[in-house]
């Protein structure tokens, strides 16, 4: 496909701006030795600008693979990825796309703050400006006082919060997150949910996040995409309509959760 195909299909839509992310007929399989596994099969997904989309599905259904493909570090076998109306290969503002991996990927030889700064080092930027922004990002994830700790000195939850700070520090237009809160305790997780929604109110970035927690998906997302396992396809995209802040004890919220559970 080409540029025309990325924009053409969007021009027929009512929205004047192209979707932030558009996936068209994505296939992906892996070959391990002599066996080939089909991981993604004909995946279609459209994410509007500024939307928060949750991605849920069984383990191994290809959620991480899908984020890898959106971020451009993995090529699909077939199909088209469009970012803001441009084919992935031609899109040139990748530094406005952040990807928080499923593992924290902190560089062990760097302190927490230097790990956050890493995301700003692709471009040139004054050193103190970089440090200031990294410090603010660490404050955001409640890690003041741990700037100079090395990763081995931090707990798993703290490490994933450093990774979260690293993905936020660039103030991305698109934020991809692979199970960003799965290693946090309930208390911190709630704080981070509030923080994410607050930042989203402020910056209005597009968010795609993977989670295994249906309640989390329903609390945060505008839409939840449910993936079926092997080969992974988007089984259904469910709109989450109740206004925020959402309360998981409210009947309209619990009924949505039940519906999602049934779909997985």
């Amino acid at each position: 496909m080409n540029q025309a195909e990325c924009t053409q299909q969007t021009s027929s839509q009512a929205a004047p701006t192209p979707p932030a992310i558009r996936l068209g007929n994505i296939d992906k399989s892996f070959t391990n030795g002599n066996q080939t596994i089909e991981v993604l099969k004909n995946v279609n997904l459209t994410v509007s600008p500024q939307a928060i989309v949750g991605l849920i599905g069984a383990s191994g259904s290809g959620k991480s693979t899908l984020l890898n493909i959106i971020s451009g570090i993995m090529k699909p076998d077939r199909g088209q990825v469009c970012i803001y109306g441009a084919p992935s290969e031609e899109f040139n503002d990748w530094r406005s796309v952040s990807y928080m991996f499923q593992d924290d990927r902190l560089l062990p030889w760097r302190t927490a703050i230097r790990n956050v700064e890493f995301a700003l080092e692709a471009d040139s930027m004054p050193k103190n400006e970089r440090a200031r922004r990294a410090f603010e990002a660490l404050q955001l994830v409640e890690l003041e006082g741990f700037e100079d700790a090395f990763p081995y000195q931090l707990s798993g939850g703290m490490r994933s919060r450093v990774a979260l700070a690293r993905s936020l520090v660039t103030e991305p237009r698109i934020l991809l997150m692979d199970e960003p809160f799965s290693r946090l305790d309930a208390q911190t997780r709630m704080l981070m949910h509030e923080e994410l929604l607050r930042i989203h109110q402020l910056k209005r970035m597009t968010v795609v996040f993977v989670t295994h927690d249906v309640a989390e998906a329903v609390l945060l997302a505008d839409q939840v995409a449910v993936m079926s396992p092997r080969p992974g396809t988007i089984r259904e995209v469910v709109d989450i309509t109740p206004p925020r802040p959402r309360d998981i004890t409210r009947p309209e919220v619990t009924s949505t959760m039940q519906r999602l559970r049934a779909l997985i």
């Binding site: 971020s71 451009g72 570090i73 990748w94 530094r95 796309v97 990807y99 991996f101 593992d103 990927r105 560089l107 030889w109 890493f118 995301a119 080092e121 692709a122």
Partner: peptide, 24 residues
């Protein structure tokens, strides 16, 4: 390889990958 991928996501130039990941 995961760290190389991280740098790739940030679209870091190759020489920075050398000095910031390979060298350490």
């Amino acid at each position: 390889a995961d760290f190389i991928e991280l740098a790739q996501v940030l679209r870091m130039p190759q020489w920075k990958v050398m000095t910031k990941i390979y060298l350490p």
